[in-house]
Amino acid sequence: MEPQKSMPVGGLRTDEDAYRDAFRRFLAGSDEKDATHAYLDQVVRGLPARRVLIDVGPADGTTTRHLSPSFERTVCVEPSEPMRRALARTCPGARVLPDPVLQARPGVRADLVLLSHVLYYIPRSEWVVTMRHIIDWLQPGGTALVLLQDPDNACMRMVRHFTGVRFDLEELRSELATDPAGPVGGMRLDTVPARYRTVHLEEAVSTAEFHLSVPADRTERPHPARHAVQEYVQRHFRTPAGVYTIPHDQEVLRIERSVPR
């Protein structure tokens, strides 16, 4: 077996250039941003007020930059120093907090809090306390949006196949609804379709590696060998026309904080 084929896949760290490069390559082949921005625009239009946006884990700030013009103030919570450098270029007018989310204290009430594809990096045991902390930042009538991939889409079936990890916002909604600390407000799950396409096998494998690097709570399974991931990609994602297509529909947990009577 060739050495590079036996190399493990899925060990990229968020502070590495290779991780950010794989992320950029994934987004370049996906319609995720366009679909997500269209969904978010619809949510923003329905907000009772648009004074403060808080974006938790905004990465390079592409979505923050899209949303910020609709709000008077923007606050970002981003503990990654490389991502904060990117944010300074993308969203120079935003106030950026360098703290982990549970330590962050924005000091303002938000009309919209966005937590987009961040819970992957937070231990599952901390999801409820994290959401409670974030919901406390909302104005009465404000909305929190939590985005993750649908746990049953093709991309996350691959992640589960190789890592044993499942991320499920329906479970989080149920836990918040029955939390002894009391109700958090109205909740519902929405779906935002997304699809990645490429004609290049190596690009598809790079996208697979990016997603296999995500889980915060991975099992004790070793990282899979590159040849195993390549075989999986060819078997499950290659169409008869030779295009590698990876559906990665997103789920959105939408939480609206109640207005006191």
Rank of each mutant, 00 (worst) to 15 (best):
H236M: 13
L119K: 00
Q42R: 15
M7K: 13
E72H: 10
F237L: 06
T74V: 06
M156S: 01
E256F: 04
L138W: 00
L27D: 07
D190R: 01
E16T: 11
R25H: 04
A216D: 12
A22V: 04
P100Q: 13
V101A: 07
S258W: 12
E78C: 03
K5E: 10
R226S: 07
E32M: 05
A22Q: 02
V243Y: 07
R105N: 12
W137A: 05
L138C: 01
S125I: 15
A228H: 08
G29H: 01
E256Y: 08
P82A: 08
G185V: 08
V146M: 09
Y121I: 00
V243E: 15
R20T: 08
I54D: 04
V96K: 02
T63A: 09
R261I: 07
H200F: 14
P215S: 11
V159K: 04
R51M: 12
G93H: 14
K33I: 15
R197E: 14
T74G: 01
P100C: 08
I135M: 12
E78S: 04
A88C: 08
P247K: 09
Q230K: 15
P180V: 06
R105K: 11
E170C: 09
L172Y: 03
I122Y: 06
L97S: 00
V96D: 10
P140K: 08
A177R: 15
R85L: 14
K5V: 06
H117M: 10
R45K: 11
P48D: 11
D249F: 03
N153C: 12
